[in-house]
Design a protein around this nucleic acid. Structure first.
Lengths: 128, 128
DNA sequence: CTCATTGTACGAGAGCCGTCGTATTTCGGG
DNA sequence: CCCGAAATACGACGGCTCTCGTACAATGAG
């Protein structure tokens, strides 16, 4: 709980973001958040790295407003954590929190998503 | 009718029900189906037994029409299998199919749901 | 300070979703 | 054959969601 980063502290600046506590995270909300294709894509990209990524680094097929909306749904459901860093807002998966509440859920969903992506990629490009 | 082939046997009878084939099941659809509290409750009850259960054996806080709707969502997303048995319609989880597509997904979600149920049951009855 | 970058707020619209009540269908039993 | 039980079909309604565009706020660089 030691505030390491000096530039942006979640609870210090005026641009603080509301995150649900562990006890407030619901499995229905998490599943609903992961059920959207755009959001699942975001989560998969976040899982590819251990770093926190800015929203602008995501190449999504929706507008900027819609991107904000999806990130908020992910944050308010407890799937991701967001922090301001300058004008950017970096996001990262709440892997530890989710694993503490629902062990293996995130990994299993990610594995299922990867599996489906491979399955669809193998079936679509060669229809003949 | 259904555009693509299904896993249902062709000579099942006049009241045959359309089920998605393995290749048609999508992780987004499964997650969306499981994200509803009523449907998750149905799935949890189905997981408690190996038998197939009639819709009337479920004690749900919704009307009969809504119950039919939820069972259809579960069936069309590939989560459950339904068959007519007289006037009743029995349902069972497509455990093997789901495990073949998304290994461990169903079990992990069910475990997460059980965990949350215990957590909420332990916190609510003693508010003061 | 000025400006470009980044993301938010707000309002709006289209569509889906969960819910219901009522009428209808299908089947087994008397 | 007629009736009751089980479930569906259909229409409807309210609410939420996904989407967008435009206007606005916050921050770092020059």
């Amino acid at each position: 709980m030691t505030p390491a980063s000096a530039t942006t502290d979640p609870a210090a600046g005026p641009r603080a973001l509301a995150h649900p506590a562990l006890a407030e995270i619901r499995i229905e909300g998490v599943l609903h958040a992961l059920a959207d294709p755009v959001r699942l894509r975001i989560v998969r990209q976040l899982a590819d790295t251990t770093d926190h990524l800015a929203c602008s680094t995501f190449d999504l097929p929706v507008s900027k407003s819609t991107t904000t909306h999806h990130f908020r749904v992910l944050r308010e459901s407890g799937v991701i954590h967001q922090t301001y860093r300058g004008t950017a807002k970096v996001s990262g998966l709440r892997t530890e929190d989710l694993d503490a509440l629902f062990p293996g859920l995130l990994a299993t969903v990610l594995a299922a998503s990867d599996r489906q992506a491979e399955r669809l990629a193998a079936g679509l490009p060669t229809p003949g």
